[in-house]
Amino acid sequence: MAANLSFNASLNTVRESYESMKEKVQPYARVLAARAKNRPTSQSFIANLTDDFLEFHGDRRFGDDGAIIAGIARINDLPVTVIGIEKGITLQESIKRNFGAAHPEGYRKALRLMKQAEKFNRPVLCIVDTSGAYCGIGAEERGQGQAIAENLMEMMTLKTPVISLLIGEGGSGGALALAVADQVWMMENSVYSVISPEGCASILWKDSQKMQEAAEHLKLTAQDLFEMGVVERVIPESSAKEFDKVYALLKTMLYDSFQSAMQKPTDELVAKRYQRFRQMGIN
């Protein structure tokens, strides 16, 4: 296992694989890969990256949202809070999890556990995989916009390290609500976008079939976003069969990053997080 890879070695692997990725796969092919049915979901990541995971439920205000799995666990000897958007594996489970489209109570559960992480000085790992926050009557009635807004605001000054990992789809505000972090990492075949390519094509060109073109222009692949400085790392995936190796590398990277972030004064951490987003979109 590669669990004992040194931090530098793992970083080099990331760089090398990033170079090889540069010969472009079509962006829309990445979108399809990110949505693929057999793709590991948050549960697999939690199972493979952490031990002793205890899931906690509910937002203490309205209910429990199955689209978000949250709790505490450890990465090696480090206790962490883990929050993942879960699409579900079987159809039955996916229905229970609303296909990974969270309601306001999901985002409020996430924030509750982040505040708890702050209190107990635990770093937070967010795992993002959603086509977007749910668009429905209940979600609107209970303030989907307000819930996301509050997460953005509170995460910005959360006094504990936060890393967000995008593992599949990063759909707009619903993804960002768990991605105001010190570092944002993306799996090689994940995407992150302000709107789905289909939505973009249908609004701009009244033709949802132009999604391939839209995917290209939106710059939503991990590689594009890395080049733009929107994400810090792209995690190479190799083949699905070898996902064990990916987990091992990822676990080392997370452990090392959290350990070094825990050494820093929280004020510095929070100031850097502010700057991370502050400089986005300035020429």
Partner: peptide
């Protein structure tokens, strides 16, 4: 968000929220 500016317009949600928090604090 203005989709023609892609992810960078999404990031403005986080950026402005950070500034609101700074002001609020």
């Amino acid at each position: 968000a203005r989709m023609q500016e892609g992810i960078l317009s999404l990031m403005q949600m986080a950026k402005t929220s950070g500034a609101v928090k700074l002001h609020s604090d």
